[in-house]
Design a protein around this nucleic acid. Structure first.
Lengths: 139, 139
DNA sequence: TACAACAATGCAACTTTGTTGCAAAATATT
DNA sequence: AATATTTTGCAACAAAGTTGCATTGTTGTA
């Protein structure tokens, strides 16, 4: 696994540093999407706040992670699929945010349906974000 | 139009104040969605920052406006349709954010398709946000 | 392995964004 | 018109995000 992480960094032509290895491994461990705040809490002792900001930024640029829009002013980040290349992302799956526990899931089983837009509108990215109750919080 | 605005406020059992009239009229004038920052720029001379925060909050609660999630940490607000009642919104239309000019459109013509979720997941709200180039910025 | 070139990090200072409590002002109710 | 209620502005604060620069760490090459 550790070897896997350095391999990902190398594949994207990034220097192998402690911060990047740690933050990237956090994504693998949790499995779900994380907001900046989550990452800061889980690694604030190890790294400076600024480093986390910059690391997330480069990860997004390189196509390692992608952003998930939310309605509460806290953008979340999640691992991209292999197909994601630098510049243009291909994360056309649904994201689910639980109102109870706050966990953000990538629902890989469902893909985002194509939408016909009015004339002149050209879609670059489509985000389908559903909020509600997840299967753990469902009573 | 001015009469129209006070009528909306009254319909939702809100006191008629300068701040609320002004902010609500801004939404009608621009026609598109606005982020908090936009509103602050267009009325900062008239009102305190805090008032804008609180006004937007009450408008959302009363179902006059709804939030549009974005991937850049700046939630946008747009007018609701008449059907929107306090508590639960019915804005099942698509939102389009132009990467060029930044304008956020409500694409009323297209409605959000229903999505089947895995077992145990219950959807409360569904947001379909598309980013790309709008018909004004399209060369 | 050691060295130079380059990139990433930490620190500090700062800007922006959002929140809370309370007194003053505006609005609504009678 | 007078009182009760709501809303606003102010101040102070907390949180989130940014920038420049010196220091440290990483990479590629001899």
């Amino acid at each position: 696994m550790q070897a896997n992480i350095t391999e990902i960094l190398r594949k994207h032509q990034l220097s192998i540093t402690e911060a990047r290895k740690k933050i990237l491994s956090l994504f693998w461990e949790t499995g779900n999407a994380m907001a900046h705040g989550d990452i800061e809490q889980k690694s604030s002792a190890d790294f400076d706040r600024v480093t986390i900001y910059r690391t997330l930024q480069t990860f997004v640029e390189k196509g390692i992670i992608h952003t998930i829009p939310t309605a509460d002013n806290s953008v979340r980040y999640a691992l991209c699929k292999d197909e994601c290349a630098a510049g243009h992302h291909h994360d056309d799956h649904v994201h689910f945010i639980c109102d109870d526990c706050g966990i953000t899931y990538c629902i890989d089983e469902v893909s985002v349906p194509k939408v016909k837009l009015p004339k002149g509108f050209k879609a670059a990215q489509t985000d389908l974000v559903i909020s509600g109750t997840c299967n753990k919080c469902d009573l």
